[in-house]
Design a protein around this nucleic acid. Structure first.
Lengths: 229, 229
DNA sequence: ATGGCCCAATCATCCTACAACTTTTAAAAG
DNA sequence: CTTTTAAAAGTTGTAGGATGATTGGGCCAT
């Protein structure tokens, strides 16, 4: 059996290797990578070739270059960057509907697959929400609330779903902030969280999906009223 | 309010312009773009700068270069390429669960927002399935079936959701082929499609979600039995 | 300490040259 | 005239060098 020769261009090879370095966390997010001159030697390619590879990853959102300063690792994967770009362009209403879709499914999966560790994480998130609420710390509360929802999605144990969900949260952060601060003197209804937690704990998928739905229905209504203004 | 100075590099500017050309279909998918020498003049930048811009878009999956031949437009948007890459790496089980999440939500939305045009498209897809089934044309049937599900998602009228769903279908195509050809002498249960169509027509969101769920549960079970082998 | 200046490091852009590959053209062979 | 072969032209890939622009740190005078 004769195989086709895999003729990857040098640029692609270099880019793939750098991606691998980032993926394996040998180059960690936030860290500065070696300067061009050094990388030229290490990869044994010309300046042009190296720069094209780096530029490709910069455009993909994995790296960020600053003239005069250097190049740093910005993100671990491409999908995250691409999704963020798209979510930003989408309307808030569409984003919420997608969030409902993903989070509902995640909650059902969580009810099936949740581990003791997942439950502990969920409880910790709820406790953080309580504390933030007691101290009237709105920012902290939003962060904790989002952490709770992230924990639900993580408990679902579906990597692809997690990858898709993650970028949504960041975009929603600013929005939720608006709702809470604008809408009403913010008060924490703990029941929304604990009901969901109980459903996941007792592995009642149907109830878990129901609670997510009723919670996000409120969010959706807030979005729609905001759009009317 | 002080704004940051927008200091876009030449490469970014060129890349953005090319992306725009592709997005606006002035450069259509499959068509060959002008050679480097020509683009250098048009953008009034050096070859390096132009090449870095093109390379970024090649890496993103929008363009494809072949040495000695030229560069062609490969895809209209970045998300599609990035998602495909990720979905390919994900397990089939995870992919199916994500598909359930998106398609269920889309079906509910479709029940609310469907237009007469959407209904006509759904009916046409069902008819195509029937014809393919009568002629025992498996490939054609799978294509028609996928078209039906795409039509459902499109009827949901959520661009972000559509963007996320689209890449899943391609990956699932080959898989569905395996199920049908391998599992049993393939027979078309028209009820699955018509029930869903009726639910969407009568705007019964709950029933629509239910039919999607029961349909995809079968798919999921097939995936799980295949994985055991 | 503060502000201004210089200097080294680093990325940005441009240029030229050549190699590798593809397509077209034209010549040569039948 | 058709087919084959070879040359030529066109296009992308890689290399190396040169200069400009920006950043960050160190030095010095105030």
């Amino acid at each position: 059996m004769i195989q086709k020769i895999n003729r990857m261009s040098l640029v692609e090879q270099v880019a793939a290797q750098i991606e691998e370095l980032i993926q394996s966390e040998q180059w960690t997010v936030g860290a500065k990578i070696p300067p061009e001159t050094e990388l030229m030697e290490q990869f044994a390619v010309s300046r042009n070739t190296l720069r094209e590879a780096i530029r490709a990853l910069v455009h993909a959102g994995l790296l960020e270059t600053k003239q005069g300063s250097g190049t740093i690792v910005r993100s671990k994967n491409t999908l995250d960057a691409a999704l963020k770009k798209y979510v930003k362009k989408a309307t808030m209403l569409e984003t919420v509907d997608v969030r409902i879709a993903l989070e509902k499914q995640a909650a059902e999966l969580a009810a099936h697959h949740r581990t003791d560790q997942d439950l502990a994480q969920l409880e910790a998130s709820i406790k953080a929400c309580q504390q933030a609420a007691e101290q009237d710390d709105v920012d902290q509360f939003i962060a904790s609330d989002i952490n709770f929802h992230k924990a639900v999605v993580h408990a679902g144990n579906n990597q692809l779903l997690i990858q898709l969900y993650e970028p949504l949260t960041e975009v929603l952060y600013a929005f939720i902030q608006d709702i809470i601060t604008l809408d009403k003197p913010f008060q924490y209804e703990e029941g929304l969280h604990t009901d969901l937690l109980d459903a996941i704990r007792t592995q009642d998928a149907e109830a878990a999906a129901h609670y997510i739905e009723s919670y996000l229905k409120i969010v959706k209504e807030n979005v729609m009223t905001m759009m009317e203004e």
